[in-house]
Amino acid sequence: MNISLFYLVAFLSIFFSLLVIFSKNPVHSILYLIITFFTFTIHYILLNAQFLAIVNFIVYMGAILVLFLFVLMLLNLNKDSEPLKSNLLKIIGVIGGMCLLVTLVGSTKALHLSNPVVLQTQNLGLVKNLGKVLFSEFLLPFEVSSILLLSAMVGAVLLAKREPNNV
């Protein structure tokens, strides 16, 4: 049952992520992106990673995509105000797409059926275990990434702040 559920959810996530790319209206594509992230949350739950699931839910669905939607709502995207695409851009696009296609075809050659991932410890994804691992084994990367986020935040504040002599 779990395997079939996995395939269903996996199909849905691929389906909706394709819709993100193909829908013409940017707000619609953001909404499809939200559904895609929701299917990711279901994937995490299937792996019994409750904490990751809920963090994905809060941070990506609840905050980051709200901001995406926020920005897109402020843009007035009528059909006639869409920027014209020059021929050069189209050619570059075609070349880029071909490169991606070649890479994908090449990578399928190296493809082989892998065994389904078996969790070594079933409760790895629960908060307690995750916390223990994060704060003992991976303490340094964890703290480094927190400093990275802090520096990004300081940079954002600095950019947003007006220069004193311009006021």
Binding site: Q50, F51, F57, I58, M61, A63, V66
Partner: peptide, 21 residues
């Protein structure tokens, strides 16, 4: 569930979509 508070937090944060959409 193991992450009860966070679940509520997530649902609350999702609530804004109804208003936005």
């Amino acid at each position: 569930i193991n992450v009860g508070i966070l679940y509520i937090f997530g649902v609350v944060s999702l609530g804004v979509y109804g208003v936005m959409i």
